[in-house]
Lab assay of single mutants.
Amino acid sequence: DDWEIHFNNITIRLHGVSEEQIEELKELIKNGAHEEELRKWAEEVNR
């Protein structure tokens, strides 16, 4: 699925990401992940 997530003036566009991966991302954000951590997560997902 395609997703677009907005938070802290950042837009993250995701393509072909599962519901499970979105839940992981929500947890990262909820736990106060920094932009660098989110980038690493996105790189892993996009492999």
Score class of each variant (00 low, 15 high):
Leu14Thr: 03
Glu37Trp: 05
Ala33Ser: 04
Thr11Asn: 08
Ile29Leu: 08
Asn8Phe: 02
Glu44Gln: 13
Glu35Met: 07
Glu37Met: 09
Arg39Met: 15
His15Tyr: 05
Glu43Pro: 00
Asn8Cys: 12
Glu24Asn: 06
Ile22Ser: 02
Val17Pro: 15
Trp41Ala: 11
Arg39Gln: 13
Glu23Pro: 01
Asp2Ser: 13
Leu38Glu: 00
Arg13Thr: 04
Trp41Ile: 10
Glu36Asp: 15
Trp3Leu: 10
Glu37Phe: 10
Asn46Lys: 11
Asn8Leu: 10
Asn8Lys: 13
Leu14Gly: 03
Glu27Thr: 14
Trp41Gly: 02
Arg39Lys: 13
Glu37Leu: 09
Ser18Asp: 05
Val17Ser: 03
His15Ala: 08
Leu14Lys: 02
Ile29Phe: 06
Ile10Phe: 02
Ala42Cys: 10
Ile5Thr: 04
Thr11Phe: 10
Ile22Phe: 09
Arg13Gln: 08
Ile5Glu: 04
Asp1Ala: 14
Glu44Val: 06
Glu36Lys: 06
Trp41Leu: 10
Gly16Asp: 11
Phe7Leu: 12
Glu19Leu: 13
Asp2Ile: 14
Val45Pro: 00
Ile22Gln: 04
Thr11Met: 05
Arg13Asn: 13
Glu4Leu: 11
Gly16His: 15
Glu44Ala: 12
Val45Thr: 05
Phe7Asp: 01
Leu38Trp: 01
Trp41Tyr: 04
Glu27Tyr: 05
Ile22Lys: 10
Val17Gln: 02
His15Pro: 06
Ile10Leu: 09
Phe7Gln: 01
Asn31Trp: 03
Ile22Tyr: 08
His6Glu: 08
Glu4Val: 12
Ile12Lys: 06
Ala42Met: 12
Val45Lys: 07
Gln21Asn: 06
Glu20Cys: 07
Glu20Pro: 05
Glu44Cys: 06
Gln21Pro: 00
Asn9Gln: 07
Gln21Ser: 08
Asn31Pro: 00
Asp2Cys: 15
Trp3Asn: 03
Asn8Asp: 09
Asn8Met: 12
Leu14Asp: 01
Asp1Ser: 14
Ile12Asp: 02
Arg47Lys: 15
Ala42Ile: 15
Leu25Phe: 13
Ser18Arg: 07
Lys30Cys: 09
Gly16Glu: 09
Trp41Phe: 09
Asp2Ala: 10
Gly32Ala: 02
Trp41Lys: 13
Leu28Lys: 06
Lys30Asn: 06
Lys26Gln: 09
Val45Leu: 11
Ile10Val: 10
Glu19Asp: 12
Asp2Pro: 12
Glu36Gln: 07
Glu27Trp: 08
Glu23Thr: 13
Glu19Ala: 13
Asn8His: 10
Glu20Tyr: 07
Asn8Gln: 12
Leu14Arg: 02
Glu23Cys: 10
Arg13Trp: 02
His34Ala: 13
Asp2Lys: 12
Glu4Pro: 00
Arg47Asp: 13
Trp3Glu: 02
Gly16Met: 05
Glu24Arg: 09
